[in-house]
Structures are given as C-alpha cells and as structure tokens.
C-alpha cells in the first residue's frame, strides 16, 4: 500500500515540479542530447507511476510473495473468476493500464499519420516547384525569403531557398545544410512526434506541455552541435543570424527570438562540455526515472517473496 501511495504522490508532484526544475537546469544547453533524454525519462516516469500505483494497490504483496508460481496461480484464478484476487480491483488496474496505453497508441498514430500525409503533400509540391542540386545535396526553391528546413521521412531531403543562397556565403550554406542533415540523420522528427503525442494524449499535464517546448528547442541545439563538428562555429552563428533576421519581422509575436539568441551565443562562445561527474548524474537520473517506478512497485512483492522463501537464510 505504501508503494502505491509513494507512486501516486510522485506522479502528482512530478507533473508540476519537474517542468520547473528541469527548465531551470543550466547544464541542458551544454549537453542537449542528455537533456532530451532527461525530459523523455521524466515523461515516462509520470506515465508509468500512476498505472503501477494502481497495480501495487490491488495486487497484494502476499500473492507475489508466494513466488511466481503463486502469481500465475492467482492470475489463473482471476481469469476463471476465482476468489484469489479481488477480481474487480485487478480489473480496474488492468483497465487503467490498458486505457493509458490505448490513448497513447491512438494519439501516436494520429500524429504520425498526419505528419506523413503533410510530408507527402509537401514532397509532391516540392518535386514540381524545386530542383535537386547535386552539389549541395539539397532541394533548391525559388523564393526570396531566406529559409532552410528539412523534410523528414522516407524521401527525406534538406530544402533551401534561393533567398538563403543569395544572403549566405558558401561556407554558411554548407553549415546550415549540415544542421538540416543532422536533423534527418538523427530522426529528430520522431523525437518531436513522441513529445507531440504525449501532449495530445494528456493535454493538461504541465510536464508534457513543457517537455514539448523544451525538446523542440534542444533538438535545434543538438543539430547545431552536430553541424559544428565539421563546420566552423562562426559560420553556423553567422548563418543563423542571416536566416533569423532576413525574414520579415513580426510585431505580434513577442518572445520569439530567445532560441535564436541562445543558439548564436552557444556557437560563438562554446561552453565546456559536462564534466564526467555531471554526465554520470544525468545518466543516473534518467535511469532512476525510467526504472524507479517499477522498482518501487516491486518492493513489497520482492520483500514478501524474500520473507517467504528466505526465512531460513534469516534464521541462519
């Protein structure tokens, strides 16, 4: 019962406090890949802990305590409507788990199918309007506004406008296209689709809302870092400024340029990578959030199992 309470409380507290805590993390910009993993792990923990809490509440530890055979026996009894487990309680737990899984699957399918349809329509128009430039390895579109983007998926390609080609030097063009290729190779659209799925499935969870915003931002930082392995950072920074300022300014949208400024500053003044200790701390927090809820839920069962089978050990 305690495990169920702990998990339930964690889920409630984590959905509200984790987004604030993680959004403050200064190290995220130094290690975007790890920061994305932390956000994903946080989301996973908030998803699994309520389901496991219900499961821990309705499955008595003593059932697990009698060993796997006992658990199977109890399951068999449950399926044949036996008295071993309270069948309604287990039914509720299974229903809760199944509902969460079904909701996520449905929303994931909706997000992915919609994205695929949009990409296909886009690719069709692009094949008529653009021309593939072999030297650049990208599709060039005649358009005055400087823009660069990528179209992921099966026929993935980077796209750049003639406006961008005119306002950027060849080095800067190469740097921008390396950034787009990093998105495509890293399959960043799937990471975004995952974050999009969660907020669509559970729209009022603050953690999921913040996770989508942060993951979208961190993915850009990550692609910059990948591009910076092969291209001088100054070219990336200069290209970012050209692309960000070359478009018609918006007077309606206020706090938009924060990401752009962060990215330019990061490229001009690279921070030290994380120390080994910081990196370990990050990895451990990912592991704890992924495996923690299951471990907490399993503690009563495992201790009952030990008490049941290892009492001789304790007697010695």
């Amino acid at each position: 019962m305690i495990a169920a309470v702990v998990l339930g409380l964690y889920a409630i507290i984590a959905t509200v406090t984790l987004p604030k805590l993680l959004a403050q993390a200064q190290w995220a910009e130094r290690a975007p890949r790890l920061a994305i993993a932390v956000w994903q792990a946080a989301c996973a923990s908030v998803l699994t802990s309520p389901v496991l809490a219900i499961l821990a509440a309705v499955v008595p530890a003593s059932v697990v305590g009698h060993g796997l055979a006992g658990l199977f026996e109890a399951c068999a009894e449950f399926l044949s409507d036996g008295p071993g487990l309270s069948s309604t309680a287990v039914g509720v737990a299974l229903l809760a788990g199944a509902t969460v899984a079904a909701r996520i699957s449905y929303c994931a399918a909706a997000v992915l199918l919609r994205a695929r349809r949009e990409r296909q329509e886009h690719a069709e128009m692009l094949s008529v309007l653009g021309r593939h430039d072999r030297a650049l390895g990208a599709v060039v579109v005649d358009h005055t506004e400087p823009m660069a983007y990528c179209l992921p998926g099966r026929q993935s390609r980077a796209v750049i406008t003639t406006g961008a080609l005119h306002s950027l030097t060849p080095d800067q063009v190469a740097a921008v296209l390396a950034h787009e290729q990093a998105h495509l190779r890293g399959r960043h659209h799937l990471v975004l689709a995952g974050a999009e799925t969660l907020i669509r499935a559970f729209p009022h969870v603050p953690l999921f809302a913040q996770a989508r915003i942060e993951i979208a931002r961190l993915i850009e930082l990550l692609a910059d870092d990948v591009a910076a392995r092969r291209h001088p950072r100054i070219h990336i920074a200069a290209a970012l400024v050209r692309l960000a300022t070359g478009r018609f300014p918006a007077f309606s949208l206020g706090a938009g340029g924060e990401t752009a400024l962060t990215r330019v500053r990061r490229m001009l003044h690279p921070a030290d990578p994380l120390s080994r200790r910081e990196r370990m701390a990050g990895l451990i927090s990912v592991a704890v959030m992924v495996a923690g809820p299951a471990a907490v839920a399993a503690i009563p069962g495992v201790s009952a199992f030990l008490a049941h089978h290892c009492h001789r050990l304790f007697l010695l």
């Binding site: 997000v111 992915l112 919609r114 994205a115 949009e118 990409r119 886009h122 823009m147 660069a148 983007y149 990528c150 179209l151 992921p152 921008v176 950034h179 787009e180 998105h183 960043h188 659209h189 799937l190 975004l192 689709a193 999009e196 979208a216 993915i219 850009e220 970012l240 692309l243 960000a244 300022t245 478009r247 018609f248 300014p249 918006a250 007077f251 949208l253 206020g254 938009g256 340029g257 990401t259 752009a260």
Partner: peptide, 14 residues
C-alpha cells in the same frame, strides 16, 4: 505539427 517539417526559427523576430 513539427513532426512534418523541421524549420529553422518558426518564431519571427522583433
């Protein structure tokens, strides 16, 4: 729906 295309700077600057 950013899963469809990944664009540089969706936000426009003041």
């Amino acid at each position: 729906n950013q899963a469809a295309t990944l664009v540089h700077f969706l936000e426009r600057l003041t």
